[in-house]
Design a protein around this nucleic acid. Structure first.
Lengths: 216, 216
DNA sequence: ATGCGGATTTTGTGATCACATTTCCGGCGA
DNA sequence: TCGCCGGAAATGTGATCACAAAATCCGCAT
């Protein structure tokens, strides 16, 4: 079979599958800060051998999603207050830029989709579903930023989200009423009006809001 | 031996050693864009087995320092013009902030060290030593930013440097006279004068300068 | 009860192997 | 001369094993 050769179905490697699954769990706050992770545990959970589990852990630690103790033990990171503020600063620097770049390309269908996602966010808030809230909140931001056509910048921001994942879930758990939906509405209005400064401000406010109740 | 137990000398793992060595090579432009990398080749070069070599490669790819083809082949990335501009934008966003944060903590000894490094940079320029130029240029920035006490932000910037490494060396090779030393002098002067806006501007100009001659 | 010491289990690490696929290269035919 | 084909070499992938260090657990003495 040489001529009608189909492009040889590519099977995503095992370590890639494990990596994506773990990454999603961490980013969406399904892992508690400080929670111990073992390579053999991952391997058993996903029914694979140690090798791909180890590679997934390596990639995650390279992204700062997992932290290693001096002895090589793996765990979800426990972020210090300073670290959290720093990561929030990075978000505050990058995300308004991404939003501004997305603005000229944001057509009506996108804005409607953002509104739908925002409705979901509000539902998650009343349901007090922390994981669902984080997931849909990130989906809101990602949907907007994807229009920026800036994959490297988006990847960088996602890395920050990843590092904040476990902490965010623990943080929002004690959070009575996140105002994200409000900031999102402001952002959508600015998006509609073509108001770039307003959009950047709304995104910045949304990003740094979770930081404020940190002093409690 | 229970009481006088020394803290059990920790030996840095093999995969860590290989990772650091490779990372340094890539960041400093000792790898050509598109250059093929093989796991077995790395293993042989460093006299280790495939396992730690693979883990080092995984971490590097997670940082964007290496790129994988669909078939899993590893190579140094060939960045598109858009990607380069994007990475420069990230630098332009983060590095002025790092400089501004470092400013209040920058004492005289630091400024002198920066001047020394800048002298080295000028020597590298006249010697047309691309790798040496990149290395000392990054050392200049890192020395300044270390004072910012913002490890997460610095790590993020270093990731960008890493991604730009191979391209930078190929780029500066055809570059007649980098003006980095000049921008650095301006930055040092602003640092001395406590002129934060001037410092941020100088850093931004320095960071985006390499971008301009990209249209050639 | 409580702290301590040693045995036991757990865990990360590195090496090796087998396998499937891809890539490379040399030769053959149009 | 150019293109194609087939085998050989190279490469990534996943599994398994042995080993050392660390963490845990259990019983004992105070």
């Amino acid at each position: 079979m040489s001529k009608s050769d189909r492009p040889t179905e590519i099977t995503t490697p095992t370590h890639e599958r494990v990596f994506r699954a773990l990454r999603s769990e961490i980013m969406h706050g399904e892992i508690t800060p400080g929670q111990a992770i073992t390579i053999r545990g991952i391997a058993e959970t996903y029914g694979v051998s140690m090798t791909p589990a180890r590679e997934a852990v390596r990639r995650l630690t390279a992204e700062g999603a997992l932290s290693l103790s001096k002895t090589g033990r793996v765990s979800a990171p426990q972020l210090s207050t300073e670290r959290i503020e720093e990561l929030a600063s990075i978000r505050a620097l990058l995300e308004p830029e991404l939003a501004a770049r997305a603005q000229p390309r944001a057509h009506l269908a996108l804005i409607e989709r953002l509104q739908n996602i925002n409705t979901t966010i509000e539902q998650m808030i009343v349901k007090k579903d922390a994981v669902g809230y984080i997931r849909s909140n990130l989906e809101f931001h990602r949907t907007l930023y994807l229009r920026a056509q800036a994959p490297a910048m988006l990847a960088m921001v996602e890395t920050v989200w990843l590092q904040l994942g476990p902490t965010m879930s623990a943080l929002y758990a004690r959070l009575q009423r996140p105002n994200a939906a409000g900031h999102h509405r402001t952002a959508i209005a600015a998006l509609r009006a073509g108001d770039e400064p307003g959009l950047k401000l709304a995104i910045r406010a949304d990003v740094t809001q979770g930081l404020r109740m940190l002093g409690s």
